[in-house]
């Protein structure tokens, strides 16, 4: 198996929002424990350097992505980006002292909604997580959870009353999670909320939420604020999880049926060797 750092180098990571007038000409940040600089030239072209190395760079989903590999895996696709009626909302970046994998896993969990996002994404006593389906799509190499249903008092900024929201989750890369959920305004389309995670190092990450919504009414500030509010509620939990890294061995954190997506995610990470930010169980010690 490839070592976790080498495996992590094959992917793309978000480091900025394309149209961010406040980004300095030379913006210093970190990816996979390396100091890098994102440089914006006079004519607007972008480049990423790490010491003497020059890293790959691309733009997608309103974000600037970089990869240390000369030959990275293709960036995952979100076909809905071509639906021009959607409103595309980059929500900024929030730094969190937790493993990048923990941030993705928390996003995949719905059981915490009533307790962490009380009266917004969940409420007591509506705490039951009904059975849902999880698959690993071998052709696309993605984790997919479908038929996830949950009662939500305020599913989105545009929701006026509680609705049973249906969710589909996609994990197309180890540090990206995409959520499709019932659109409160329309029943023929799904809203999209993504979490793009920048691995600062194995114990720290920066999270760039991005949304593609059908919402004609809410102001940009309202939509961004709603997402930031939700994420800041999560941040508090994430920073208090112990261990900081995501345990891969099922014996270390006991899952329940509601955690099927997380179980599949951990298995998929293990299978594909994407263990940067994971806690790998030391070799079994004998019982004596």
């Amino acid at each position: 198996m490839m070592n976790p750092v080498e495996r992590a180098k094959q992917d793309w990571y978000p480091i900025g929002i394309v149209s961010d007038p406040r980004r300095p000409k030379r913006y210093a940040t970190r990816v996979l424990g390396k100091d890098i600089v994102l440089e914006t030239k006079e004519e607007g072209s972008l480049s990423v350097s790490c010491g003497d190395e020059s890293w790959e760079i691309t733009e997608a989903y309103d974000h600037i992505w970089t990869s240390p590999s000369q030959n990275p895996k293709p960036l995952f696709s979100i076909p809905e980006e071509n639906e021009r009626d959607r409103r595309f909302v980059p929500c900024g970046v929030v730094h969190v002292r937790c493993s990048p994998l923990r941030a993705v896993e928390n996003f995949l969990d719905i059981a915490h909604f009533p307790f962490v996002h009380t009266d917004v994404l969940g409420s007591e006593p509506h705490t039951e997580v009904a059975p849902y389906k999880v698959n690993i799509d071998e052709t696309k190499d993605e984790v997919i959870a479908t038929k996830v249903k949950f009662f939500q008092p305020q599913a989105a900024k545009s929701a006026n009353e509680g609705i049973v929201t249906e969710y589909i989750y996609r994990v197309p890369a180890p540090m990206t999670a995409i959520l499709y959920k019932t659109c409160p305004n329309r029943d023929d389309v799904l809203d999209i909320i993504s979490l793009f995670v920048q691995p600062i190092d194995e114990d720290n990450c920066a999270v760039w939420p991005w949304m593609a919504l059908y919402d004609d009414e809410s102001s940009m500030a309202d939509m961004v604020e709603f997402q930031q509010l939700i994420f800041l509620q999560d941040r508090n939990i994430l920073e208090n999880q112990i261990p900081k890294r995501l345990p891969i061995d099922p014996k270390m954190e006991i899952p329940t049926r509601a955690d099927l997506t997380s179980v599949a995610y951990r298995r998929w990470l293990k299978k594909s060797g994407a263990l940067y930010g994971a806690l790998i169980q030391p070799a079994e010690q004998s019982a004596e």
Binding site: I17, D20, R22, P90, C91, G92, V93, S219, M220, A221, D222, V224, E225, Q228
Partner: peptide, 10 residues
């Protein structure tokens, strides 16, 4: 009235 402090510095 919500003002987008971050990232837009509204």
């Amino acid at each position: 009235i919500s003002v987008e402090f971050h990232p837009a510095a509204e």
